[in-house]
Nucleic acid binder design. Sequence first.
RNA 1: GGUCUCGUAGCUCAACAGGAUAGAGCAACUGCCUUCUAAGCAGUAGGUUUCAGGUUCGAGUCCUGACGGGAUCACCA
Length: 588
Amino acid sequence: MTENIKPFISDALKALFDIEVPSNDVKLEITNKDFEGDFTFVVFPYLRQSRKNPVETATLVGEYLEKNCPEIIDSWNVVKGFLNLSIPVEAWLKSVLKSDFNTQPADETKRQKVMVEYSSPNTNKPLHLGHVRNNLLGYSICRILEAYGHEVIKVNLINDRGIHICKSMLAYAKFGHGESPAEAGMKGDHFVGKYYVLFGNENKKQAVELMAKGVSEEDAERQTPLMEEAREWLVKWEEKDPEIITLWEKMNNWVYEGFNATYKRMGVSFDKFYHESETYVLGKDIVEEGLSKGVFYKREDGSVWINLTDEGLDEKLLLRKDGTSVYMTQDLGTADLKYQDYKMNASVYVVGNEQDYHFKVLKSILQKLGRPYADGIFHMSYGMVELPEGKLKTREGKVVDADNLMDEMFATAKERTEEQGKTEGMPESELHHLYEILGLGAMKYFLLKVDPLKRILFNPNESIDFQGNTATFIQYTHARCRSILRNGKFSEPVRLPEHHEPSEKNLLVLFTQYFEKLEEAADNFSPSVIANYMYEVAKSFNTFYNQCPILRANSEDQIQFRLYLTLQTANMLKRCGELLGIEMPSRM
RNA sequence: GGUCUCGUAGCUCAACAGGAUAGAGCAACUGCCUUCUAAGCAGUAGGUUUCAGGUUCGAGUCCUGACGGGAUCACCA
């Protein structure tokens, strides 16, 4: 819409004041609610050259527009240095009518192949609320990037090896008596998690004994017989000891079964799985390469480092003195592997902000090594989910379990829906689905509406809202629209009725903003942009609904026009919901 | 201590690239269902945007410093 107006403003500035401003550089803003108009042109930056005061300058531009493009500008007014322009409703309606909101707005030059790595769980415990945020952010940003026009590859790098895995294995071997998850009546991931916690508890007991002998707490936890044994198991695992490998596979498969159920319920999915058990050996040849290129250096003890102090970063270890690799080594190798596999333009890592430093270093190293994909690496960092008493900690049992939370959300949704008593006659299976999308929707919206960079405080004692700025509100609005659409019959073509209300125009204006919002969400990796936008749409519809009769409007044109607004609202909410993984019910 | 990050109503969050009188929701209070879904709408109240400087026509937004939270700086992953 602004593209229609900008050239005229550019012309006006040239004709009136001889100021050269390419129309692309003309800044138009959305007019503040309290003033009349749709767009505002701010003249302050041009006063020096116009040699007139703000009001005179703005007025001259307004008069120029009135004379030269009356069909685009309905009316205008000047407040101080602000020129407010009103666009006729016809233009807004035309713009919405000709938009196909299902097209991808990115032009050819902007389209890319993007890999998004997210979820990346450890296979020693079930998923908790922190993982849920990661999964939802990751999945949602994939949908947003796709809708924008990128080709997206969703990747999950599973952390299926390492000392923490050995801990749960060892505890199971010692205390599990060969029990299976089915026998214990547990989901596989919870079952394995039980033994991980058990290891921690048993280890603590042993540590206490050591501490009684005067060992410091820190050392004691590391020196217990159990820890010794876990480390031995890790070595055996790396040597591919058949017994260990068999147990490892068995337990991991239990976990995968559990994860798959949780993923499915959350509605997230992946195109490709990488496993650290396969990638942890990668990266050593990169260390060699870095040494020969002089990017890395070797210390006297044989360990390999990179010095990044000139970038304000630190010195970073890449290979231990015994030649074994560290986290960074493996990530370098995995980055190469991903690129070999997919040759993507950009690689996004959805990982918590506790690893900001790690990813800065990773990117910097790859740039120094001259990797063609290095500049395309982006760490989609997000804040932690915290409880009132602080960070989530599996070992201390301070967690909000993902499966439990979803169960609770389901139960609350069921309760609230029954209270409302509007679902009579719905078959049981539909009701079940309704509770599920209401419960999960509320949870998803709660996590996605917040700017990813900010941390989220979750208070288990206060249940997630179903009122106000929530998914429920949006879902309710959608159901309301569909209900109206069931009662009336919308048919093309849409004609503008003689009279229209501000709330009707407001909806049209909002619809035209969809593509901008989509682009903003994609550029900033921020699903919250979409969440806030759809809330705005739903809110505006409800205002409209309350002041305008739809099916009982005055004329057939008006009925059809209002039905059209209702239909567009429903479609827009559904579309945005898909970007966030939130389903819209047609009844509730 | 170094680096990074955040600080907006009692609480949870908005505010496009610096623009006008900083907006929503929750909680509180007041109205609105004989009418298309009241999980809704309309209204009241609530603010020195942590503080102090600076940049400019204009700062919640940019810069410097202070204070307060969080993260990180491991031959852990």
